[in-house]
Design a protein around this nucleic acid. Structure first.
Lengths: 215, 215
DNA sequence: TAGATTGTTAATCGATTAACAATC
DNA sequence: TAGATTGTTAATCGATTAACAATC
């Protein structure tokens, strides 16, 4: 009990480690579904493309999870990572922007599996307001702040057009939102009170485009 | 002329730099639309959340782009980055998986602006095959390899369900595809002949989830 | 026990930052 | 010219990797 509390308070992991934890988790779940019970850092390294040393280092940050001479128990590993990433805790989410991408996310099964509960879409298009997509209602932007407070929303996903995203983020800073997933090419920076994580599909393609020509 | 060829051959930029180039480009275009002509590394650093030293370092890798005492000419900067990232060159793209996300991408204007031309969706669902979304036809998987060759497709975007993505990638390795954007939570590694870039929305949310609790 | 693999420390590598001379 | 900001080198920082003693 005391130990657990202590770990909870102290476990500040570097960004790259946190990102890899999702990968380990995904891979562990696939293997468990195939009835695998154990895996060594070497086999993991072959599947994931990290070095085995890095994998052991990462896991060692979470505690002594492995068995020497044998490897890692996948069930223990999976549970530990889920605990660290707070996958077991329900997180209420809204999506701002009821366009193609926003609507597509309402049907994303992976989100439910990680306990991200989408409570509403927000948009300013009066043709969309009042509709539902996959049972998720579309609400007008003016209800944003109240909704976040009332429904205890912790994370907003921004899928509006690029030129609107700064404005939307501005609005969010005046609410109780704690985290923002920015799916827009516009740069948004974390603030004192809001964690921002940005994903840009065009950036991904640009990266590939570059590497196709210079490598 | 000689110099240009030389740079083209030699400009191997580290991954983090390539990723930031997309950010610089996006921001430069926004500023140009607002009729700004120049920007200093300091102002850039405030908008993008990088240090000014890093920005100057990054740009210096592309050549001597700035004017001492004055800053960077946004038009020159924009053109240079577009040239480096090969934005001016048309890249034929296919999307594998005509689900919510795949279809959403067919309407993504940003892709066209960077000259990524979506030529087809691929799926195995007979109800979808033959349909079009935003004028993009859905084709059966068995035509994949021929289509890639005939239409000179260089990049495939994978948006199939997680358990199918390894299989799809396996198929792609037997084609002429050069780059893969993996939008699936399943890990896929670059091979000798294929550049892979992976983006996982759930990973992004997991990251936020972690940082909300430990920071 | 012998063989295998972890956990961890120390070494390496690479990326970021600080600082400032050069110069517009 | 004086002021400002770049381009670049050297210092720092942090993340990855190598190596191996501990041990299952």
């Amino acid at each position: 009990m005391r130990k657990k509390t202590k770990i909870t308070k102290k476990l500040y992991l570097p960004d790259p480690v946190v990102e890899r934890l999702s990968r380990y988790l995904q891979c562990s779940e696939v293997l468990l579904n195939k009835s695998r019970a154990y895996i060594t850092s070497i086999e993991f390294s072959q599947t994931l493309g990290f070095t085995d040393a890095q994998i052991r280092k990462d896991f060692s940050l979470l505690g002594r999870l492995g068995t020497k001479g044998k490897g890692y128990d996948l069930k223990i590993l999976k549970n530990k990572i889920k605990e660290v990433l707070k996958v077991y805790i329900k997180k209420q989410v809204i999506i701002i922007g009821a366009g193609n991408l926003g609507v597509a996310l309402t049907g994303h099964k992976q989100l439910i599996q990680h306990n991200f509960i989408i409570k509403a879409l927000f948009d300013n298009d009066s043709k969309k307001i009042g509709k539902t997509f996959n049972n998720i209602p579309v609400k007008p932007m003016k209800e944003l702040s109240d909704f976040i407070k009332k429904e205890d929303i912790s994370i907003a996903i921004i899928t509006v057009p690029p030129d609107a995203s700064r404005r939307v983020f501005e609005m969010l800073t005046k609410t109780d939102i704690k985290g923002v997933l920015n799916l827009t090419p516009t740069t948004i920076n974390s603030t004192e009170s809001i964690i921002v994580y940005s994903i840009d599909i065009t950036q991904g393609l640009d990266f590939i485009s570059y590497r196709l020509f210079y490598r």
